[in-house]
Nucleic acid binder design. Structure first.
Lengths: 344, 344
DNA sequence: CGATGTACCGGAAACGTTTACGAGTCAACC
DNA sequence: GGTTGACTCGTAAACGTTTCCGGTACATCG
């Protein structure tokens, strides 16, 4: 492997000069800089990351921790795929690399993160699937690792986050359903302490209150954020003495299982039960009925995440003078056929 | 941040001794080793990865490159999530960390990989979504980076790979459909040069030949591996002069779009058209009709990938004396309702 | 008692890079 | 012509770790 030393003796200059030339330092003759650059590409020189990291205490890599938690919003891979894309677009122009750190199912997320942080393998972190109380935030704060959370938590402390508008979506879904004539509306939320469940439930309650409907705890269905969970939701709905006419789902893929269960009961989703999903996924408009859900540009979300993270990194903050970002990301309702029903 | 130096002066021993104690070298007194270990955990010492990497030329990290290619087998849903889990299980007991490297949509996979390799950020690589001709294999071979491919390619060269049994599944699907009375069977494959498409098509042809059915190029439908692509498949099927009675899909989520299109035509999937999907995904048994598809333990696949990779790494090969692995991973057919139809 | 061996440990070099410092050259200026 | 400053560049230290080499202490053996 070719290092800076080979480059230096190949050009008959010192390694210091080579380094300065490559790093765009001003105190190097423009002509020699060109010679160095030419030789570097010719010989295929790429700086050894370990040496550089050791010297300047920075790795030029940024970690994105993803959970194996079934209840995290974008459990499906292509949620994060879109977000990564936006993040990488930002990082690309700062010579930063994105490395994704998936926490294994059999490992505690906190333990995993502290291992990764201690190894100093990344300069900063993006964490997702935040919990109601998330010790990872304290960990990163005390370790003084710049980070941003995709998702809020109730942990007090000054930390940057961007979160989808779970609250707003739940409450506006209620508005919409009430307009369509529904009064008895159920909601499906996770049973774990993942924070988005609380946000969604809060929004649900706010929506009910705004429309003068009393909150009924019996209409809150705890289920896994999966197709299986959706099936379970259908089961619970059908078993209710006074069946709700509508349900709001916290995770779009639940609709598949829910549709199935409703169909099995001889009923038709969208007609006998109005359904609003959370995020518009690729399959939303190919289900029957098509799913009413909310659109979000994952790439834009990723861009915002990346830029907001850089804003809190000393080395890049000057380019992004936006301070500590705390932002609720808006989503746009895309009407489908699943909630077109008006009760009797 | 606490380094080995602090540890040494805190214990009044040399840094060499501390290092030897921590790394389990034999030439250190057992009592001092215990003292060192105790102090290390007490002070929360974790070796700086950059320093270690620089010295011994190894990063203890292994990269898993994933494409943003829509046609790669498990593009959406949690295909990779399961595989990661198995890989991490193997790596965990060798103090290796898995880092996932997602190639952005706007970057060429080859360029991306060479950047990652040159930065020496990982010791070995797992690549996926192999193409018919995949230059990445040559790149890794000449760079002498240990690697394994999840997926084959036609590139000659001695390299380890594990691939799902695309060929076998396609051909056995034909067997099954023929047994059910079908003779006119279509197939959906990607239009890109991703290798699994070729394998699947080969299997399709082999299955037809084995059952004495002439291959009709008009029954090969090129479509994106997505719900949208599945809808397109349905469209193409319905437009055919002599409509096939069955179709084999290379990607399970296509079923959702296909179902929709068939329903729109007033027909019923599973009755008017037999459908066999590729992999059994979480939603397979919640679709209506449930999807006949093939089961694979993603975790086991990940374990095999991890172990086979270690087998080709000099530092770990002795523990996994299995040589260069080339393995077609078997999958088991799980009958659903989507192919129960027997023609008129 | 000298020689040999063993167990343990300290010293120092090395990995590849960045960067502070100083030194050299040369033109401009008083 | 000496002084000053700007422009380049070489030298060397430093980052944190591993590991080779040698050295001490002590026991064993002939």
């Amino acid at each position: 492997m070719i290092g800076i030393k080979h480059l230096a003796e190949h050009l008959n200059v010192s390694i210091g000069t080579v380094s300065r030339a490559l790093n765009g330092r001003p105190d190097v003759n423009e002509e020699t800089r060109q010679r160095v650059l030419a030789a570097a590409t010719e010989l295929g020189y790429v700086a050894n990351q370990s040496g550089r990291s050791l010297r300047q205490g920075t790795t030029n890599a940024i970690g994105f921790m993803i959970d194996s938690d079934e209840d995290s919003a974008g459990n499906s891979d292509n949620f994060f795929r879109g977000v990564f894309d936006g993040v990488q677009w930002v990082f690309g122009r700062h010579n930063l690399d994105l490395v994704v750190l998936p926490c294994a199912t059999d490992e505690d997320p906190y333990q995993y993160l502290s291992r990764m942080v201690a190894r100093r393998i990344v300069d900063a972190m993006i964490i997702s699937a935040t919990h109601r109380k998330d010790r990872r935030i304290d960990l990163l704060n005390t370790a003084r690792i710049p980070f941003i959370a995709l998702g809020r938590s109730s942990t007090t402390g000054n930390y940057p986050w961007i979160d989808l508008d779970f609250e707003g979506i739940a409450s506006r879904s209620i508005d919409r359903l009430v307009t369509q004539g529904h009064r008895r509306i159920a909601v499906a939320v996770p049973s774990t302490d993942i924070n988005l469940g609380f946000m969604f439930l809060d929004g649900y309650k706010a929506g009910l209150a705004r429309n003068g409907i009393a909150f009924d705890p019996g209409l809150v269905i705890r289920a896994k954020s999966s197709e299986q969970g959706g099936y379970q939701v259908g089961h619970d709905l059908l078993a209710m003495p006074e069946r709700p006419t509508a349900v709001v789902l916290i995770y779009e893929l639940m609709a598949i299982g829910l549709y199935r269960r409703i169909n099995e009961a001889g009923l038709t989703p969208g007609r006998d039960l109005a359904i609003i999903g959370f995020r518009e996924a690729p399959q939303s408009r190919f289900l029957s009925p098509t799913l009413t859900a909310h659109r979000v540009s994952l790439r834009d979300l990723g861009v915002a995440l990346g830029e907001s993270l850089l804003a809190s990194m000393p080395a890049h903050a000057e380019a992004y003078p936006q301070g500590i970002v705390r932002k609720i990301w808006p989503m746009e309702l895309i009407p489908g056929e699943s909630d077109a029903a008006v009760v009797k």
